[in-house]
C-alpha cells in the first residue's frame, strides 16, 4: 500500500451522493412498477434505522481508515456491547447509565488493545483486528447461546423506537456523532495529525507527529462508535444479542460504506460526510431489495458483489490518478 503520492485531505467525493440519488430514482421506478411504495413512512423509517446502526460503525471505521489502519473487530465489538449494556441494565431504568458507561468502557478498552497491537507490537492492522475479533468470537461463542440481559425500557422507548416525523432518534444520534467526528477531523490538531499519519507515516513522524498516540486514539474512537452502535441495537432488540454484529456484517459493510464514500483504503484522505452517503446508499439498496421482496440469500450475493465492485471502482480511480 504505497501512499506516497496521494494528496492529503481530498474533498469528500460528491460521487456517492449522485450514486445515492440515482439509486433512489431507479429504485423508486422499479418498486413503483412492481406495485410497491419506496418512500412510504414505514419503509423510510426502517431505512433510516438500518442506516443508523451501520452508520455509527462506519463513521468510526472512517477514522481508522483515514489513519491508514483498519478495524475488522467491529462486528464482535458491536455484539459484545449489546450484551454488556443489556446485562448491566438488567431491565431496570436505574441501570441505564452504568450499562451505557460499561459498554462504552469495554469498547474503548478493545479499541485501545487494537491500537496497541497495531502501533507498539507493529502488527498489520488487518491481522491484529482479525486476531482480536477471533478472541472476542471465542468469548461470545463460549458464553452465550442466544439473547441475554434486558435493555432498560427507557432506552428502548427513546433510542430504540422514538422518532420525530419519519426520522428516528437513532438517526439523529448518527448525524450528531458524524458531525462531531467531522469537526474532530477537519478542525482539530488530532484530525490533521491523523490525516498526516495516514498519508505518509514517515513524513508525519519526521514533522513531529506522535504517530502511535494518534493511531491508538483513532482505534479507541472507532471502537467507541462500534460500542455505541451496539447500545443502539440493544435498544432496538430489547436484549443483548451475541451474533447481531456478525450477522449484520458490520465489519465488511462499514468498510464498504467508507470506500463508497470516497475515503482511500490506503489512508490519508477522505471524510465522514462521504461515509454517511455511503451508508445511506447501502441502506437504500437494502430497502429497495426488501420492497422487491428479493430473497435474503440473493441479497447477500448482491451485497458481496457491491462490496467488491465498490473497492474495484475506487482502485481504478486511484490508479488513474497515480498515472496522470
Amino acid at each position: 500500500m504505497s501512499t506516497a503520492l496521494t494528496l492529503p485531505a481530498r474533498r469528500a467525493a460528491p460521487g456517492v451522493f449522485i450514486a445515492l440519488a440515482l439509486t433512489l430514482a431507479v429504485g423508486w421506478l422499479v418498486v413503483t412498477i412492481d406495485g410497491g411504495q419506496l418512500f412510504s413512512q414505514p419503509t423510510t423509517v426502517s431505512l433510516l434505522h438500518v442506516a443508523a446502526g451501520l452508520g455509527l460503525v462506519a463513521v468510526g471505521q472512517t477514522v481508522v481508515i483515514i489513519g491508514g489502519s483498519l478495524d475488522l473487530s467491529v462486528a464482535y465489538v458491536v455484539s459484545l456491547s449489546t450484551l454488556v449494556a443489556a446485562e448491566a441494565m438488567a431491565g431496570s431504568n436505574a441501570g441505564l447509565l452504568p450499562g451505557v458507561g460499561l459498554a462504552l468502557g469495554v469498547s474503548a478498552a478493545i479499541g485501545f488493545l487494537n491500537g496497541m497491537l497495531v502501533t507498539k507490537a507493529r502488527i498489520n492492522a488487518f491481522i491484529a483486528t482479525v486476531g482480536v475479533g477471533l478472541l472476542l468470537k471465542g468469548y461470545l461463542d463460549n458464553g452465550y447461546d442466544g439473547p441475554a440481559g434486558r435493555t432498560a425500557p427507557v432506552l428502548v422507548q427513546s433510542l430504540g423506537y422514538q422518532r420525530i416525523g419519519p426520522v428516528p432518534v437513532s438517526f439523529l444520534l448518527l448525524l450528531a456523532v458524524a458531525a462531531a467526528i467531522w469537526v474532530v477531523l477537519t478542525r482539530t490538531r488530532f484530525g490533521h495529525h491523523l490525516i498526516a499519519v495516514g498519508g505518509d507515516p514517515q513524513v508525519a513522524r519526521l514533522s513531529g507527529v506522535r504517530n502511535d498516540r494518534v493511531l491508538i486514539a483513532a482505534h479507541v474512537l472507532c471502537s467507541l462508535c462500534a460500542g455505541l452502535a451496539g447500545i443502539y441495537l440493544a435498544s432496538r432488540l430489547g436484549s443483548g444479542a451475541p451474533r447481531v454484529g456478525t450477522e449484520g456484517l458490520y465489519d465488511l459493510e462499514s468498510i464498504a460504506a467508507v470506500v463508497l464514500g470516497g475515503t482511500a483504503l490506503a489512508g490519508g484522505s477522505g471524510g465522514v460526510a462521504g461515509t454517511v452517503g455511503g451508508v445511506l446508499l447501502l441502506a437504500s439498496i437494502d430497502a429497495i431489495l426488501n420492497q422487491l421482496e428479493v430473497d435474503a440469500f440473493v441479497k447477500q450475493v448482491i451485497r458481496g458483489v457491491i462490496i467488491i465492485a465498490a473497492v474495484a471502482v475506487y482502485a481504478r480511480r486511484a490508479l488513474r490518478k497515480a498515472g496522470s
Binding site: 491481522i127 482480536v132 468470537k137 471465542g138 468469548y139
Partner: peptide, 9 residues
C-alpha cells in the same frame, strides 16, 4: 477461535 486469535497475534 479465541485460541486461534491468540496464536495469530
Amino acid at each position: 477461535s479465541t485460541v486461534q486469535g491468540a496464536i495469530i497475534l
